[in-house]
Design a protein around this nucleic acid. Sequence first.
RNA 1: GCUUGUGUAGUGUAGUGGUCCAUCAUUUCGGGUUUUCAUCCCGGCGACCCGGGUUCAAAUCCCGGCACGAGCACCA
Length: 518
Amino acid sequence: MAKSSGLDHLRSILEEEAPHLLVKRSKERREGLPPLPNATKGKVVLRFAPNPNGPLSFGHGRGVVINAEYAKLHDGDLILRFDDTDTSKKPPMPDAYAQIAEEVEWIAGFAPHRIIIASDRIQTYYEYAEKIITEGGAYTCNCSAEDFKLFRQQLTECPCRGRGANENLTLWKQMHETDSIPGSAVVRIKTDMGLKNPALRDWPALRIQDTSAHPHPRPEIGSKYRVWPLLDFQSAIDDHRQGVTHIIRGKDLMDSTRKQKLLYEKFGWNYPETIYWGRVKIHEFGGFSTSEMRRAIEAGEWTGWDDPRLPTIATMRRRGIQSQALRDFWIELGLTQKDISVPLATLYSHNTKIIDSTTPRLSFVRDPVEIELSRGDFVPHPVIEMAGHPSSELGLRKIEIAWANGSTPIFIERADLINHQAELRLKEWCNISAPTNGHSSMLSLDSDGDYPILHWLPTDSPPAILLKPEGREVKIISGNLEVNEHPEGTIIQLERVGYARIEADDELGRKVLIHLHD
RNA sequence: GCUUGUGUAGUGUAGUGGUCCAUCAUUUCGGGUUUUCAUCCCGGCGACCCGGGUUCAAAUCCCGGCACGAGCACCA
C-alpha cells in the first residue's frame, strides 16, 4: 500500500483510524549502563571477586566500577569477595587484602557492603562437597589429569565414576590426610561425559594442595587445609550462600557459568542473572599479568606496585587520575561482549574535564637556558603577578625579580630559544628581543602584536624533575619549577607542558613532579 | 578437533523492522575565544563484515560464508 499510494496517504488513513500508532516513539540515545535484567530496587546483590595475589590492576577497575554502579543504581549490596583458594600457582599476597579493600572503596566511591574471604570458608565448601558426594552428584577421581583429558576427549567415563557414595566418602577423607599428594585425587561433579561441550564433562570441583610446602599466606589458615575448592565450585557455593542476584563477568567465564548451572540444578538452586563483557586491551599497556608484575617487583625490576610504568590502580592514583574519571571511562565503554581495544586518551580526556577548572597553573622550564635580560629604560618591576588559573578564582602567583645593574637573569626553555629567532613575549610580562649570546632586552610591556608567547622563570627558581612514563622507560625531564606552596599530592598544570602531580622532594633536594597527561 | 561468543566511522558507543542519506564521545583536521601547545566554543572528515533470503520497507529478522576472540587447567 505504501508503494502504490505513498507513505503520506498511509499516514492520512492512520490519522483517521488509529492515531496512536503515529505517536513518535522516543529514540533518544540511552545514557549510562544498560538496565539490569530482573532487578528489584533494594534487592540486588552484586560481587567483585578478585584473587588477592596482588593489588588491583587497571583492568580490575572495570569490575569494581560496573558492579558498584549497578549496586548504587538499585540500592543494592556490593560484596568484595577474595577468591584466594590457590596457594601455589597464584598465591595470595598478604598485604593485598587491605590494599584491595581500600582501592575498591576509592574506585567505587563507597565502601563495599560486605567483605568475604574464601579461605575463611573452607568448612562450608567441605559441607557442600560431602553433601553432593553423599547424594551421588560427585565422586572422587584418582585418574591423572592427562588420563582424564583423554576420557574427556573420547567421551568415555573414567573408572572412578562408578564408585559408590561410601567409597567416595572414604576416598574424600583420605584426601585430607597430611601425606596426600596433589594430583592423586580430585572431586569431580558428575555431569555427563557425553555432553556436547567438552568443558562441562565431569568437571573438577576440589583438589589437593601441598600446604605443608606451600602454606596459605594468611597465618590463620597456613597449613590447616589440604583440600581446596576450585573456582567453579567455590564461587558457585558462595554466590548462592551470599544471595548474589547478578553476576557480571568476562565472557571467558561463560563455560564457568554453564558448569555452575549444572551444580545448581543438583542442589535445586536458582542461578543468578549473568551478564558478560568482552576482553579489553589498552593500547598503551602491553601484556601485564598480576603474577608477572609481582615477580618483577620482587626482583626489583619495578620500583613497586605504583611504578609509573605499570598499569595498576596504585599507579593511576599516584599520577593523579580521579576515581570519577575511571568511573566515567568504564561506564562509557558499556557492557558489550565485543573484545575491544581502547586508547588511554579517552580516560585522559575524562580526567581533564574533571580536574582542569580546579588545577593551579605553574611554570616549569625544561632544559633551561639562562638569558641576561636588560630592562633599558623600563620600570624595574620587583614582582610579576599572574593568575593562579586563567578563569577560576585560584589566587595570584607572584614572581620576584632580582634586578641588578638594570638587568636580571631568567630561564627559558632551550627549545624556545632554538625555535624562535625573533621578538618574543614572556608570558604575563613583556616583549623581549631575540636572545643572542645569552643576552636580550625588554622591548615593551604591553603586547602590541602577535608574538610567540613563552613561559619563563627567574634563575633562582628551584630545580625540579618531571617523571614521564614512556612505555617501559621513565623519562626524567629536568628543569626548574616556579616557587609555590602547594603541598605534596597537589595536581597542577605546567603551562605549555601538561598536567602533573607534586611528589615528595628527592634525595638531592629537587622538586619531583610526576606527569599525568597532556 | 569439539564447544562457545562477537562483528556499526581510527577507537569506543547508541540503535531491537519505517521518522537512520544512522547517535554520542574520543581521535584527527579547520576556525573562534584565550598573554599556556591547556580549558572553552563552532565546524569538517569518517561506519552498519560479505552474500543470499523474508518484507511495501532490514543496521535491526532468517540462512550461509568470512574474520577475530574465548573455553576444553588438579589457575582465577
